[in-house]
Design a protein around this nucleic acid. Structure first.
Lengths: 175, 175
DNA sequence: GGAAGATACATGACATGTCACCCAACTCGA
DNA sequence: TCGAGTTGGGTGACATGTCATGTATCTTCC
């Protein structure tokens, strides 16, 4: 992430915006990490995993889906879940529909840890992100971010999250 | 980084904005990393270091300042520079003004690697970030990000980057 | 000028993440 | 229905990042 010389491919306005984005992104990441580590015994990655599970039905999610959602490598997730399950925050359970697949399941302890950590995190986000922000800019900011998100989904290398993307035969451009 | 249940401390609008931000941040980080690794032999952290040095006078920066600018732990920087200097991308040189201090200096090879990697990176940024963005939103986005950045600087734990912050005696609130 | 504390950085042990590769289960077409 | 190719996930070696601590230098204040 680099607030610097992106060359002539971007207009000056775009460059400035990009640098502002990168600075925010770097600092914010640092601060979130720090706050979680000191106030709970979760790392930011832990927190992200717990959150993703918590807002899935039954607190369970298949590994590939989880990895995509987090924009993680699958091997990273595999290792990370090993550590988290050793701490009792999640469990692995084999999928019933696909015998290759594994699902990560939130345990009670995991849910509790998440609940405990959330207020502090939210407080930090409010203080760092929203308290200095002119409320009049909020809608535009949100729309802009959503547009960028859509763009990254469309042109990025990661699959879209959500449904298993199972393509049934003969249904391509149904017209 | 977690697009989820931040609790009642944020308004629904703020929550949506925050989740959009986090999704973008995760994906974008992933894609930038990936692009750099495949198209150059730099990692994103490498690239950031080179960039920071490249836009400093003489391509040199004292380690603490560099660490602050990157929002890195200093020990991380120390290790990382060791590896980068082993690859010939940077050099360490002792500071003349402060014998405790070390400065990181961009080598010719480092500058060359940066130059080679930059266009591809910029291209990715344009494609992922700006191509899907309504230009009318750009000014608001930029202002919003700058406001957030200022906020993080003011209320975060990292010092402001830039000058050495040397406070001379008796000059506090000069009034 | 000299001790107490702060600051700059390095280092080693350990935690975390990546990469290349593995196998098992699934899919699809011949 | 069987075999090639794909997909889901695990694993071990290695790269990277963090934390606690160490040493030297600088600053402050008496």
């Amino acid at each position: 992430m680099s607030p610097n010389s992106t060359g002539p491919l971007l207009t000056p306005d775009q460059q400035d915006t990009w640098f502002a984005y990168m600075r925010v992104s770097l600092r914010l990441g640092y601060e979130m990490n720090r706050q979680l580590q000191t106030d709970s015994d979760l790392s930011l990655p832990d927190f992200d995993v717990l959150n993703a599970l918590a807002d899935s039905p039954d607190g369970r999610l298949q590994l590939t889906g989880l990895a995509t959602r987090l924009a993680w490598e699958r091997s990273r997730l595999s290792h990370h879940l090993q550590r988290m399950s050793a701490r009792g925050l999640v469990e692995r359970s084999p999928s019933v529909t696909d015998r290759r697949a594994t699902e990560a399941v939130l345990t009670d302890a995991g849910r509790a840890a998440l609940t405990a950590a959330t207020p502090g995190h939210a407080e930090l986000v409010r203080r760092m992100f929203f308290d200095g922000l002119d409320p009049a800019l909020l809608p535009a900011l949100r729309t802009a971010l959503e547009q960028v998100h859509e763009q990254v989904l469309t042109h990025g290398t990661l699959p879209r999250p959500g449904r298993p993307q199972r393509r049934l035969p003969g249904l391509e451009p149904t017209g």
